[in-house]
Design a protein around this nucleic acid. Structure first.
Length: 258
DNA sequence: ATGGCAATGTTTCATTGA
């Protein structure tokens, strides 16, 4: 069995205790983090290593930051999209594990508002992610491309698609850009097992949104065919959105039987 | 239409997030 998790923790410093408890409880083979919100010097390496995890970390001051925690030590680590790409925001890290699976933790740009400068950056970022995949991988590779994609791919993934039509996360341009990435050949492993509406991974901190289930499904575990064919279960751990000091995102979990 | 909540650094406000 190979268990993968993605979790936007909204500051690894603030979520350290939750993260350690989660790892003890779930013992995933790989846990991908987004929004570390700190430089590598602030990352709690020693406490994570004490729980048996290797930490591959790409940090940045104040914003962004991604990591992959894994039970097995990675054979290879890549940060962002390589020498051909000069983006300095720490939004992407890929590790090759000994079982030949590439695990990629992605923190896609928010985009702020349709038409804004940051919106253009978001669309461009997806385009560069697709180019990175084309340059470095083939469809026959076992890849888990996971993270906070900041796009709700379908109206089914939005609590009020009418009110939020053409808002950030739901525009045609964002959905089309995400599809360009997924068109590499990925499956949305959560939807392999859950087809219904009302299932989200993020809820606004404001307005009691979680209690009302006013959310979006924007955190994904995408897998290429040789991995997706073994996906036996998937779920969203809503319990992590409850209690004291939760992240606004819940962890998304996928299990692969091989 | 707006703000509401949370986290970080530029810290008692500004910026960003989604």
């Amino acid at each position: 069995m190979f268990k993968v998790v993605t979790w936007n923790v909204n500051s690894v410093t603030m979520r350290k205790d939750r993260l350690l408890a989660f790892l003890e409880r779930e013992r995933p083979d790989a846990l991908c983090l987004q929004e570390l919100k700190g430089i590598e010097e602030k990352f709690p390496f020693s406490e994570l290593e004490a729980t048996g995890y290797h930490a591959s970390v790409y940090g940045q001051k104040a914003y962004n930051g991604v990591a992959v925690l894994s039970l097995k030590k990675p054979l290879e680590i890549r940060k962002n999209f390589g020498a051909a790409d000069d983006d300095e925001a720490a939004r992407f890290i890929a590790v090759k594990l000994p079982n030949d699976v590439w695990v990629m933790s992605a923190y896609c740009p928010n985009g702020q508002a349709p038409g804004s400068e940051k919106f253009g950056y978001k669309l461009d970022w997806f385009s560069r992610l697709r180019k990175y995949l084309d340059r470095n991988h083939r469809l026959t590779d076992k890849i888990a491309l996971v993270g906070d994609f900041n796009v709700a791919p379908e109206d089914l993934d939005v609590y009020d698609p009418v009110a939020l039509k053409d808002h950030i996360h739901t525009t045609k341009a964002e959905r089309s850009s995400l599809k360009q990435v997924i068109g590499f050949g990925f499956y949305d492993t959560f939807r392999l097992h859950h087809k219904e509406a009302g299932l989200y991974s993020w809820w606004d901190y404001r307005q009691n949104s979680f209690v009302q289930n006013l959310g979006l499904r924007i955190d994904m575990i995408y897998a290429t065919p040789p991995l997706a064919e073994f996906c036996s279960a998937s779920r969203i751990d809503r319990g992590e959105r409850e209690g004291d000091k939760p992240s606004d995102h819940a962890p998304v979990i996928a299990e692969f039987d091989f």
